[in-house]
Design a protein around this nucleic acid. Sequence first.
DNA 1: AACCAGGACGTGA
DNA 2: TCACGTCATGGT
Length: 242
Amino acid sequence: MDVPLSLTELYALLLESYGKQGWWPVLSRSNEPGFDSRGYHPGIIKVSLDDSDRWEIAVGAILTQNTAWTNVEKALYGLSEGSLETPRAVLAASAETVALAIRPSGYYNQKALRLKSFVQFYQSLKGRVPTRDELLSLSGIGPETADSMLLYAWQRPFFVIDTYTIRILKRLGYTNDCFFQKQPSKRYEDVQLYITSKLNSPQKHMQYQEFHALLVRHAKEHCGAKARCETCPLEARCRKML
DNA sequence: AACCAGGACGTGA
DNA sequence: TCACGTCATGGT
């Protein structure tokens, strides 16, 4: 283990270990076969997203800020229960009503305001794809949330950098690469450029979607705050930094 | 019973 | 610019 994994090796190894993740997880609005009793279908790739899928992904991206996805799932069902699943329903509802519905996702007062703010922008798009700067100008939408929306809701090639990504790369031994020396404020774009410059799939957004989903899967399974290295598929190639 | 989870933003130094 | 506090629920 003298040389750290290249990013393409890492991607291949994760894919081989965990299989395709098929993000973003979306709630089903139909009774199609293959969905569980709650209408949830993790791991099934929808080739073409409709408008309600896009909206749900964008909402999920806001709700999942520093929050476990299981709680986001509950909040999404809360919105559905409260008939707040459409943009115009969220627009019409009070912030208090929205907050109540999304309560399980935490930070519910902040997030309710962020959703109320975002829905106006979303409707103003009228189907157009937003730019990254437009998303960043909205209150409560930072680089990760913006990139999550662009990558998963709008299928655009923006790699998502989250705490999992940083932690995994750090532990694998990428610490010596330039981007970790930078200030935290400018680190996001540096890490993003580092990663995307080394990936070369012709279908960029698909590779970015899958890679990021695999990193999340790997972090949840083996590389959490408390690492479980015993059964880790990357154990032999990991420097276990920090 | 602390700690963690797919962040973003305001504040004071 | 940086370091830190705030926002909050639910699972382990």
